[in-house]
Design a protein around this nucleic acid. Structure first.
Lengths: 158, 158
DNA sequence: AAATAATAGTTAACATTGTAAACTATTAAC
DNA sequence: GTTAATAGTTTACAATGTTAACTATTATTT
């Protein structure tokens, strides 16, 4: 059992492996749609009721905007999303799912649900709630760093 | 609060930022020793009583062996570790800290402890225990995947 | 004992993501 | 109306992951 958080980093890596596993078949069916983060992006777009801009997605999923541009380029190329200029604020691009993407959303949701079921097998519901609550606290703590500790610029939004 | 694990991935990324913050000064003092994972490696070597081979470190810290070679190359270059062939099994290399590295271990331990204190601020001890226990279960669940789901090769050790 | 398989480590090539800087276009603020 | 801020893009570079091929050494098999 890890004693310190700096020994827990493989979680992200392993979840990447899980994603590959649960979306392997779906990925092949979709001309090898990238598997690592693209499914999370599609789900996030689908979940969003308000206008979905690239900045919004970057903030929500915590990808930097350069990587977001690259990933959205990829999804456009794969005909999974469309990018249209927002006429109310022409700096923004509205991201929307194509019909092709909408059709596979049920499979994506199912894959993500199965992934989570596998990960949390044997963890009780209350424990799971504590886990997510801790995770939330940690993420908050980490984002709100004491100003005296640091190069402030690390805290600033890019 | 995240509902599903695939939305929690920034934890690893943020911990990287924290590492940079808590080791920024130390890093500068050490001719800009890389900050992201090198401190964890040094701590792992220092913690190890048994013989410390590259394979052992890869397994412990969950870095693949190619990356481990690169990072150890870097640490050798920075004169923080030595690599010596194990005369009992000449395939293995024993990794040891140099005196230079041993001297800064207290600072590294302090930095890691402060990092964890920051991350867990406001999380009760029992909750923290549940958190780590969940994390352990999740990591176990993810490593022991049901064989019918997958490309078995993903499970194999590299 | 010799052939074969497995292990530890290395190297090269490539893909992905993060980061920083410079840039355009557009909107907001003074 | 000038200046500042925001959304997005592009380029270049660094770090890590992945695969495959490779050497050297040790263990296993026959």
């Amino acid at each position: 059992m890890p004693e310190q958080l700096n020994q827990c980093m493989p979680l992200g890596k392993y979840m990447g492996v899980l994603t590959k596993i649960y979306f392997g078949a779906l990925s092949k069916k979709l001309e090898h749609l990238g598997v690592d983060r693209h499914f999370s992006i599609l789900k996030a777009i689908d979940n969003t009721n308000e206008k979905c801009t690239q900045q919004y997605l970057s903030d929500l999923l915590n990808f930097d905007k350069v990587s977001m541009v690259r990933m959205l380029d990829y999804l456009v190329e794969k005909k999974m999303i469309t990018r249209t200029v927002n006429q109310d604020d022409r700096r923004e691009h509205i991201i929307e799912l194509t019909t092709k993407a909408k059709k596979i959303m049920p499979e994506i949701r199912k894959g993500i649900a199965e992934m989570n079921a596998t990960a949390f097998k044997g963890v009780s519901k209350p424990d799971r709630e504590v886990f997510y609550s801790c995770l939330t606290t940690i993420l908050k703590n980490i984002e709100c760093l004491p100003a005296n500790e640091v190069d402030i610029k690390l805290k600033k939004k890019k």
